[in-house]
Structure formats: structure tokens, C-alpha cells
Design a binder for these strands. Structure first.
Length: 511
DNA sequence: AATGAGGAGGTAC
DNA sequence: GTACCTCCTCATT
């Protein structure tokens, strides 16, 4: 659905909070140039755009009317997704009071995610076409093409919300919303009326006379009138989740840079406060020192009775939910929680890197990451890792052939010769849930206040659990069996309305 | 086919 | 004894 590119969401609470902070951190590296900050977060480096039609111009060919529709619409859409980007792309999160909407910075543009790998060649072509028109004097861009381009702009767009069929829809079966525009394309020649009020020469000159700092593009992208004009509605987050997983890879550079920034910042604060980089290691007094430091850092109002509000040590603090932070400190709780998440991630990342340096197996960035068993170290590929292990082989081939005793003997002589973690499964799942930026594609909260979560990628979660426990043959079947054992123990329960891969912590376990 | 549910026997601590 | 792990069968989606 083309409109999924309109990267808005309505439910700000679903957006991993610390993710927003990460983008804030990323954007801070360009404090003087709002557009550059956004472009950076977007992984969209304007400086890389060629001045002289370096982008292959052959990608744009004016062939079919429906293609022109697409081009026209995409030109309109582009300012939509960026026009809402404030100087700090994350500030829209905190300033949700304006409309309750927030912007998810679009992924790397355009090739890896825009268009998606499933995109048609035409889609890719027209992503490039936009560059051609806006950033370089494209040979194919002449006055007539601009006239045609302007001409086919729909007089009024379809109702602009995420449910609206894409303008890319086949015109032969187009919905009522697009039929009018397609018919106008087919039927109407260039009409003089349009030319009367559009000075094409001026427009062409404006497009061609691109300043080195891409002034025209900036102005175009900073134009916020489009959203108001067409009453654009945001995209519901639920419909975006799938796409988020697809584009996740494009956020990685941003996340990595933000993590780097956070780590440097944390280093300095740790030195200053004489505290560990690991929040779990903090004493209650160190928690208070960190809270005060963070309040000051973000210019938040000081809290007089901080010691009374937060009696937890670092490990307990790390388990507090954002809601609990907000309940205790309505003004600053959310920021403090987000910042703590950043610190946890930064520490986990550092820990993971250290582990990787000594035992390079896998790259799962995970809080509490444990070095894999020696038997796993030889392979970087999960599938190879499993198939190479005696236990996995026995498990895969031994169905119905071995007695429990014999299989147990194989097991005891197989993979489990190292010290496995003592962590409980429910604790592990909470750890994954606590780092949505890292594991959000594998497991996420559905309703954090109720302790309801969903395993989005059962295979991945099972693999992570298997690694953590040094059980390379772990799979979701076994993991879910363990989860079901929690039903009897009162640690987890089924949700009221049973859903696949959705579980719920019982009350004492999700707070 | 994937997942859910639960019984049963096993190991590690 | 606890906390899984593993294998299994059957039901459901």
C-alpha cells in the first residue's frame, strides 16, 4: 500500500520511547540545520546527491499515463512525509499535544526500503525521478514535461488516509478516488487555463537553478501546506508494524550512531558521578545521583523527595515501567525512563561488543547477553550451528527411535557441557521486552500495563533463548512448552481473548 | 504448516 | 524440589 509511506502513527504510546530519544541524540549532532538533522536521521545525505544529473536519467521514461500519476502523486507525497519533520524529528513525540500524531522518520531512501524489495521496477524508477526533477538539471526535464506533470496532478486528491487505495492502483480497476484523475489524464490535452496561472518558465528556472545547498529541495520539503490542504490522516501503527520490520535494517546506522553518542555521554556521566555504566549495578544512592544528573541534563524540574520517590537500587529501577516512572514523576518520568533505556542499551551494546571480541558468535545485541557455548563459537550461521551439533542431529533424526533414556543420554553427553544461565524464561522475556529498539521485531508489548506481549518472531526468540541457555536445539515448540508451564505456576496466563503468540504476565511478574 | 495444550520422562542445580 | 528441556500426541487455526 503506497500510503504506508506516509509515516505517521496515531498511537504515540506504542512507539518505543527510547527510540525517540535515540533519534533525538542523532539529531543533536546537527543542531544548526534542521533539515540536515532530519536528513541525517533519515539516512538521506543530501550532499551525496549529484549536481549534474549523476543519478541515471534513463530510469525515467515518460510512457504511460498511470506512471505519470504515480510521479505526480509521489511528488506530492514527498513533502508530506517530511513536512512534519521538525528541527528535531523526535520532538514531535514529546509534543504530541498538537495532534497526537508523531512522525516515524522514514527509512533509508529510496532503494532498500522505498521502494520495498517487492516494488516494481517502475516504483524504483520514479523514486529516482524525483531526484532528477528536484536536484539536478535532468535532460529529460523540459518545459513540456513539467507542463504535463503539472497538468496531470489530480484536481483534488482522494481522501487522504491510510485506507485510501494507492494512486498506483491499476487504472483499469481504479477506485472512484483515482478514476477522476486517470480520466483527466487520458482525456484532456494541455489546457491553456492551467498555463495561465502557472508560469512554467519561472517554475522550470526554479527547478533547474538548484543552489548548492539544495535550497529548492529544502523549500519543497519544508512546505507544510500539503498536509493541511489535503487533510492527511496518520497511518495507524498496527498497519505499520509489518513494514517496520522490513525497514528495520535501515534504522540500524542511526541506532548505532545514537548508541555511540549515548555511550560517550554515559562514559562522561559515569566518570563524573563515579557510578558503573551498568544501571543494574547501581546502589540506591547512585540511582539518586543518576536521576538528579539526568534531570539537570534535560533541564527538568528538580525533585525534592527523590529518595522517597525512588528507593530502588539500579536493578530494581531497571525493571520499573515507563508508566511507573510517569506515575511518580508526571513531568519528567517519561524522559527519565527513556534515558534509562538508552543507558541499558548502551551498556548492553558495549557488553555485546566485548563478548563478541572474545567469542565471535552471532551478533545479537541483547541486554544480559551471554557468551555462547564453545560448541557454538565455530559457526556464525545459526542454521549451520544447529545442524552441526550432535544434539540437534540426534533430535532431528531420532524421532521415535530412541527411548527417553537413550535420548537423555545423548542429551547429557551433548550440548550441555558448559555452565548455563540461571535466568528464568520469564525474566529473559522481560529483558527482550525491555529493549524494544533491539528486539522489537522479535517480541513486543501489546499492552504493557496488563503485561500482555506478543512474540512476533517465534524462531528468533527461541534462538535467543537457546543461546542464552546454551541449548542450541531450542525451538519455539519447546519454549512455548516452558511458557505453558507458567500457567500452573501463576507466572503467566492466557489472554482473555486467545491470540496466537500472545501471552500475558500475571500481576506480580510484569511490574 | 504453524501453533496451542498438556502429559511424561529426563537433566542440572 | 525447582526449572526447565525434550519428545510426544492431539486439537485448533
Amino acid at each position: 500500500m503506497e500510503y504506508e509511506k506516509m509515516l505517521y502513527q496515531t498511537n504515540a504510546s506504542e512507539m518505543p520511547h527510547s527510540c525517540s530519544t535515540q533519534f533525538k541524540l542523532a539529531a543533536e549532532q546537527f543542531p544548526t540545520d534542521s533539515y540536515a538533522a532530519y536528513a541525517y536521521a533519515d539516512n538521506f545525505d543530501l550532499s551525496l546527491l549529484p549536481e549534474d544529473a549523476g543519478i541515471p536519467t534513463t530510469v525515467y521514461q515518460y510512457n504511460a499515463p498511470q506512471i505519470k500519476i504515480e510521479s505526480a502523486w509521489e511528488i506530492q507525497e514527498q513533502p508530506v512525509s517530511t513536512s512534519y519533520a521538525p528541527a528535531n524529528p523526535c520532538s514531535s513525540v514529546s509534543s504530541s499535544g498538537s495532534s497526537g500524531h508523531q512522525l516515524i522518520p522514514p527509512p533509508a531512501y529510496p532503494h532498500s526500503a522505498y521502494p520495498s524489495p517487492q516494488s516494481s521496477p517502475q516504483q524504483s524508477e520514479f523514486a529516482s525521478f524525483k531526484y532528477d526533477c528536484l536536484s539536478s538539471p535532468c535532460p529529460s526535464l523540459d518545459a513540456s514535461s513539467i507542463k504535463q506533470e503539472l497538468h496531470i496532478l489530480p484536481p483534488s486528491p482522494p481522501e487522504s488516509n491510510c485506507e485510501t487505495p494507492s494512486p498506483r492502483s491499476d487504472t483499469s480497476s481504479s477506485s472512484s478516488s483515482s478514476s477522476s484523475s486517470s480520466s483527466s489524464i487520458k482525456a484532456e490535452p494541455l489546457d491553456a487555463e492551467l498555463e495561465n496561472y502557472i508560469d512554467l518558465n519561472t517554475l522550470q528556472q526554479q527547478l533547474l537553478d538548484i543552489k548548492p545547498n539544495h535550497q529548492a529541495l529544502r523549500e519543497c520539503l519544508e512546505d507544510t501546506t500539503f498536509q493541511r490542504k489535503h487533510n492527511l490522516k496518520p497511518l495507524a501503527l498496527e498497519s505499520f508494524i509489518g513494514g517496520l520490520a522490513e525497514v528495520r535494517g535501515d534504522f540500524e546506522p542511526v541506532i548505532s550512531l545514537a548508541l555511540e553518542h549515548a555511550k560517550r555521554e554515559a562514559d562522561a556521566i559515569c566518570a563524573k558521578l563515579q557510578i558503573s555504566q551498568d544501571p543494574n549495578a547501581w546502589t540506591a544512592a547512585q540511582v539518586h545521583a543518576w536521576l538528579r544528573s539526568t534531570l539537570a541534563q534535560f533541564k527538568l524540574p528538580p525533585v525534592d523527595n527523590l529518595e522517597l520517590q525512588f528507593s530502588e537500587d539500579g536493578a530494581a529501577l531497571a525493571l520499573l515501567s515507563e508508566e511507573e516512572f510517569q506515575r511518580r514523576l508526571p513531568e519528567s518520568g517519561s524522559t527519565l525512563h527513556a534515558q534509562l533505556e538508552i543507558w541499558k542499551m548502551a551498556y548492553a551494546d558495549q557488553l555485546g561488543n566485548e563478548m563478541e571480541a572474545t567469542a565471535p558468535a552471532g551478533n545479537d545485541m541483547l541486554w544480559g547477553y551471554q557468551p555462547p557455548n564453545v560448541e557454538q563459537d565455530e559457526s556464525e550461521d545459526d542454521e549451520d550451528m544447529e545442524s552441526a551439533l550432535p544434539l540437534a542431529t540426534a533430535t532431528a533424526t531420532g524421532t521415535g527411535t530412541g527411548t527417553p533414556t537413550s535420548t537423555a543420554a545423548k542429551r547429557s553427553g551433548g550440548a550441555r557441557n558448559g555452565g548455563s544461565s540461571h535466568i528464568h524464561l520469564w525474566q529473559f522475556l522481560k529483558e527482550l521486552l525491555a529493549a524494544p529498539q533491539v528486539n522489537g521485531t522479535a517480541i513486543r508489548w501489546i499492552d504493557r500495563s496488563k503485561g500482555i506481549f506478543k512474540i512476533e518472531d517465534s524462531v528468533r526468540v527461541a534462538k535467543l533463548w537457546g543461546r542464552r541457555k546454551n541449548r542450541p536445539a531450542m525451538n519455539y515448540d519447546k519454549l512455548s512448552r516452558s511458557i505453558r508451564q507458567y500457567y500452573k505456576k501463576g507466572i503467566m496466563k492466557k489472554t482473555e481473548r486467545s491470540q496466537r503468540l500472545v501471552y500475558q504476565f500475571c500481576q506480580p511478574y510484569h511490574q
